[in-house]
Design a protein around this nucleic acid. Sequence first.
RNA 1: GCGGGCGUGGUGAAAUUGGCAGACACGUCAGACUUAGGAUCUGAUGACGCAAGUCGUGGGGGUUCAAGUCCCUUCGCCCGCACCA
Length: 818
Amino acid sequence: MCDTNARRNGKTFEEWQKEWALEDRYNFRTIEEKWQKIWEDEKTYHVDIDKTKEKFYVLVEFPYPSGAGLHVGHPRSYTALDVVARKKRMQGYNVLYPMGFDAFGLPAENYAIKTGVHPAISTKANIANFTKQLKSLGFSFDWDRCVTTCDPEYYKWTQWMFIKFFEKGLAYKDKIAINWCPSCKVGLANEEVVNGCCERCGAQVIRKDKEQWMIAITKYADRLINDLGDLDFIDRVKSQQINWIGRSEGAELDFDFAEDKLTVFTTRPDTAFGVTYMVLAPEHPFVAKYMERFENQDEIKAYVEETAKKSELQRSMSEEKTGVELKGIKARNPFNGKMIPVFISDYVLTGYGTGAIMAVPAHDQRDYDFAKVFNLPIIQVLEGGDISEKAWEEDGAHINSQFLDGMNKEDGMKAAIDYALKNGFGHPKINFKLRDWVFSRQRYWGEPIPMVYCEHCGWQPVPENELPLTLPEVPDYHPNDEGESPLSKATDWLNTTCPKCGGHARRETDVMPNWAGSSWYFLRYCDPHNDKEFASKEALNYWMNVDWYNGGMEHTTLHLLYSRFWHKFLYDCGYVPTKEPYNKRTSHGMILASNGEKMSKSRGNVINPDDIVNNYGADTFRLYEMFIGPFDQVAMWSEESLMGVYRFVGKVYSLFKKVANIKPKEEDLRAMHKCILEVTERIDNMKFNTAVSSLMSYVNYLTALDKIPQELYETLMKLMSPFTPHIAEEMWARMKKETLVLNEPWPQGDEKLAEDNVVTLAVQICGKMRGTIEMKKDAPQAEVEQKALSLENVARQLEGREIKKIIVVPNRIVNIVA
RNA sequence: GCGGGCGUGGUGAAAUUGGCAGACACGUCAGACUUAGGAUCUGAUGACGCAAGUCGUGGGGGUUCAAGUCCCUUCGCCCGCACCA
């Protein structure tokens, strides 16, 4: 697979040898430059479908190519999965480990607003810089498969998939109250709002009614939960997704309200006899519909207006419950015929359930608080609690509930729903917190939504043969306050003809969110240059699924959820062979500055990866990031620890001088096999930090030897090559001349050879350590006991005491109970 | 409030799942080689104690021959969601 002469830059092996002999010191710069050039020139990491081999697809989240360049956090997960990829290759798998760029996004657009530089230009420069940085770290990415989401050849297919969503009725335009960031002048998905503020700029999000493209992710809510079951995702990810989707089982019940049915969702239909009033969200359609008939219209209108002005955050923060009664119309509880008052209040959300609730103040704290403010009756229907101070939210037998009396929760629920069904005023219902995906962004630097609006034919998709619908040039990148995309200024582009009737039509001017391109990029990696389809069936069948996907926790309810949904949709359409894209999902911890703070430009505590590579080398950098701490936990950057790792790599280099063509002794092999077994097991289990510890221990062993048998050093290079590929390749070349260590088979650890036939057992008296004994492995119990008792220290401690029992755990411990 | 997780030396952290707590590093101390290298090598290093030994995994209690690990209880921290009916 490789051209030996090219690898030697035309020099003969003898010439190289002379050069090496001169170099006594570890010169990482020459070594790393040399091997990176070889890997690049020889396309060492290029991979194709090879049906004779088992495939393994390793994936890391592709970065947004920001102007700031690579962060030290990026290499943490890239190195970890590079280690996995390299080891799997050596174990004989055909490994796909690709890299690309998630290149649409606001920073490039904001930069364009400030400087006038077209986002395509700054993005291209940033990508070049990122690529250079990534290559300087020696990752084994197949760069031939690099994809970029802002490339028309790529987003052609993102647009094509949007049209599929539209064709299947899952993409629709709707006027809804959206989360509007007044600073970015853009609508945000629910997932992009953090504590009522814009995820990007931190400005407080306000509510704004806007026509938006929506994608019906809620149709997949159940499957997105249920299919998690079979997947090897870390627990935090699973539970966070489940929590976010927020499934609740209950019932919808119809209360009579004037000539209408007022439908509520409740998880506790069995508490219906405790309902003393009802509450509508101020936006509920009945408020406007019956306005004329309310006696206190002014009061109601004022309250509706006031809540409309409030942000979600302000609404949720109000300490005291507020509201207004809809005087003039009462509702009728279908369970007992009682007429009850109806209120509007901002504690009822318009977007969840039906936007209306039945209030059971005795057993729901929010209803209780509201009832106290408005002096409403509180009827206890579940036994067991004192409701004089607060609501009783635990379970108890039903009381004051006619036919439900005496029942427990389960029976009560069943009986209440049966009763509602029989009398035609209710049915079981499952609700989700998840809302449909707001897919429009009033921005420039994103995929144009490939839709045109015709007065006669309505919304029509751009015909497939006209894709990609490329972004036009615009005079000005500013969005305006009315929330119109900069694309609305591209008049030539904007006006078009209807693909259906040929009449005049207008293009959609909103673009897609950042999350669009990243929702399917792992599919494109399988077949990145295909111009007939987004990826061939053959490629998808061979490479999918992703076997191991690592990414940030912050994407759990964003990218990870979106892409699972997107993939399921493609599966339903028959375009992909599997119903889930990722078999295994792990997540790395953040790297913080040495004082425990987040690294940020404003704090001035950012560590630049380029500096680390220049001062210590890529191998040290990689190895340090693996050694820094448990992979899934936050870690603090420490220059001192980095130095320790640098010393270690230097030591490994200088040990080469002691390598000799001698036969390893039994204990040498023991140390070697122990290291093989540990490193192998620890990489598989994501314990990269202790895998490095094993290598260090092994090197400490080698350091103590006068001469190092070559086999031991060769094995060290094999084990280190996933972590520190440059030095491993270099030292391997110095020993073997012709092959690449990365093509060597991964060493096989032998349990038997790793075991010592002499073991040290701890001797305890009543659980307290009193000494140790050396025994042959698996020595008979009697012998062990005798030797333990013969210890001077033990004998002294036991003087005058009676031995009750001796517990021997083979090869571990002796505990004498006296 | 709900969900997930964590608490071990001066520091980052280990601990074959109930079996010698502190591996591997950082730091510190001592020594060697040297004498301007922030180099390298060797050794020591949980606390108290001259020592035998005693005490030690947030606190308290329990199970066990044996607990960082299991059970109960309590305190503290981190992350996600949050008026979701």
